[in-house]
Design a protein around this nucleic acid. Structure first.
Lengths: 224, 224
DNA sequence: CCGGTCTGTCGCAGTCGTGTCGCAGAAGAC
DNA sequence: GTCTTCTGCGACACGACTGCGACAGACCGG
């Protein structure tokens, strides 16, 4: 499973690709303009960005440039039928690959996996932290080689936290990202889920290594 | 966590965004006019300013211009629905980004993080002063590489002080910014917290380097 | 329709942090 | 030099926060 950000203004194409890529096992978020795309990019820290060139407002090149400036996240461009200019400019702007529209979902999925594999396998594949291995493709977690059966919610929580190791997430942020509903008043839901997950992945839940409590703020993944 | 100054005249919008951004983990102060905004800007030295264009008195453009003249603090503008004139003029006046009203809190939060990341990571990252390192994302503090376990209040205090090195904060200001409740009469609370923090981060608490006492006024971070 | 698993809520208990108090010492004022 | 004011600092008790077990409803597969 990879966290994909799809930036595409045409609602039909957007919904279609989102559905298709979701079926291929990805976690897909979408945006309809360059501005919204950059905003979503900043907040959701995806593994890869699929980017349409023709966008209202900031165009695809500019979006691509800004994303590449922000870090190592790879970009795949969607271009109108094989326009040479588009391709050259796209790659110049920092795109890792391009797919000609109309994009076949299976082709796009293959490209995505290829690009992710090429980019040091940071995301599509295995995240290893100490003795904890998180396979984001097979959606499996193992500690010291022993597979650990996590539930869906626990897994989403772990994936969210481990996507930004070291960063502190507040309970409210986690509720929004993992549970996806705005909460009225805070609850102990997050604590509970963390505790259940710890019981499975931590060798000593009393002094956790992977998911740490930051008293008064929230939780954080990984050693510092 | 970022210190945000929100300048917006509509009380409803102001309160709503303040609440929402607070939930996203930010420290939000507000102002209802351009004048008050500039005053608050001078006194609270925020990391970023979110600025409504339509303001009574000094308008948003002018406020933006003055803020940009004052330093490196980035500005995000709130504009009425996509008026081209607003956007162009806003960016010309020095805004780093703009969000169309009505602003979705999550979108605004994402923009804020994006702008902060773009602006050399001054806020969403690491502040280094001498041998003291403050990671505002992981919420960790270390001295000479040694991690220092600060409590939530101590950390908020240090974050507040270090946001404006050299500036003297009165006890009342600190109570408002760190403790967030208006105090009846002054107390020794701040002194106490400072003392506890010094014991952890100063190699010689008797002659502090990072948090200095300004007798009769308050405290100051860093060597002048 | 039934059984099992997962999820969200509740309550309790332990722990850690926080705020208050009092005293002593230092810095200025006169 | 003396007196006042302000700050450093240790002690302590209350309270907030979190861990954790128990339970009931939801959801899913058979």
């Amino acid at each position: 499973m990879a966290a994909i950000l799809l930036i595409e203004d045409d609602p039909l194409v957007r919904r279609g690709l989102q559905l298709a890529l979701s079926r291929h096992g990805h976690d897909v978020r979408t945006a309809d303009t360059g501005e919204h795309g950059l905003a979503e990019f900043a907040s959701s820290t995806p593994d890869i960005v699929v980017l349409d060139l023709m966008l209202p407002g900031i165009d695809g090149f500019e979006v691509c440039r800004r994303i590449r400036n922000a870090g190592e996240v790879p970009v795949i461009m969607l271009t109108a039928r094989g326009d040479d200019f588009d391709v050259v400019s796209g790659l110049a702007a920092g795109a890792d690959d391009y797919v000609v529209k109309p994009a076949q979902p299976t082709v796009l999925d293959a490209r995505i996996r290829a690009v992710l594999r090429r980019s040091a396998g940071a995301s599509d594949g295995v995240r290893a932290h100490g003795e904890l291995r998180i396979d984001t493709t097979a959606l499996t977690v193992s500690v010291r080689g022993e597979p650990v059966p996590l539930t869906a919610t626990e897994l989403r929580l772990l994936l969210t936290l481990s996507r930004a190791p070291g960063r502190v997430f507040s309970r409210t942020q986690l509720l929004q990202e993992v549970w996806e509903h705005d909460y009225l008043g805070d609850s102990r839901l997050v604590d509970n889920c963390v505790q259940r997950m710890r019981a499975k992945i931590e060798s000593d839940p009393a002094s956790p290594v992977y998911v740490q409590t930051v008293r008064g703020f929230g939780y954080r993944f990984g050693p510092v």
